[in-house]
Amino acid sequence: MYGGGYVPVGAEEPKAAIENPELLAQFEARIARGEKIEPRDWMPAAYRKQLIRMIEQHAHSEIIGSLPEGTWITRAPGFRRKLALMAKVQDEVGHAQLLYSAAETLGKSREDMINDLINGKSKYSNVFNYPAETWADVAVIGFLIDAAAIVNQVANSKGSYGPYCRALERICYEESFHLKQGHSVFVWLATGTSMQRDMLQQALNRWWEPIMHFFGPSDKMSQHTETLMRWKVKMATNDVMRQQFLNMYVPKIWELGLSLPDPQLRKDESTGQWLFTEPNWDTFFKVINGDGPCNRERLAVRKVAEERGAWVRAALSRADARYVTPLA
């Protein structure tokens, strides 16, 4: 689960023109024909760089995203819920593995990606910097964050880079199970006792702003996506995806008699567009730059996992093994 392909505000437009114009024309023609780019094809440096950044962020989001939910495995209400949550969290870690290998085909090793995650150089989806305070948070994450991730991932799966598309095909299939199980937990709480409904409402109130942040800043704020869209790296703008998400899921929240903490939120029937209060983007930038409620915990836990697992990897390693980039 993931959102973005976060392009920093003010990022420079890729300077493709300074590269080999003939190869660039062939590359762009291939994409325009709807063909995929494969790992050892010629590609503009800016394409490679943005794809590494995007797939790597996606991988980090999967592995960090498993932490807030993993918190609740030991305290899941009942055996079936526990089994489902274990399966979901395992899937998320599996997605990270698939995505790391897709990014590796572009020339950055998994070790380097994990190093850059831990030292803070590369980002992951901002939503995972928030805690899962109650079991209802697990419902909101499993239903709405995964739903938002699916909107983003289905769009990206039609992109131009072969290995990323192949990974996303499998990921989208598994995410649809996550969404269903999340919706099930959500509905159980929403149709339960008044205490359960109250717990769910509070979780919704907590998560609404991070969810509105999920697709990234408004298109008005993030320029320079034109080339990335022509290259089918970014497949839909942040605003388009946010509208899609609101259109599909707000009715599913309202039909259960729950509310969302935004008095402006409604669909303008004449335009088909959702109207909402612009979330606080200063909060978004503050959290993505390291100062959210759980950023420090997430990275510390990741670091401990790598460090304290080192002896196991060393014990299993063979002296003659050497690194090789995955094929596809």
């Binding site: 030292n119 990897r313 090789v324």
Partner: peptide, 15 residues
């Protein structure tokens, strides 16, 4: 924070 992992720590890949 410096690198936690060195090249090759995560092993070769298998198809």
């Amino acid at each position: 924070q410096g690198p936690v992992l060195a090249a090759g720590d995560h092993w070769p890949s298998y198809q």
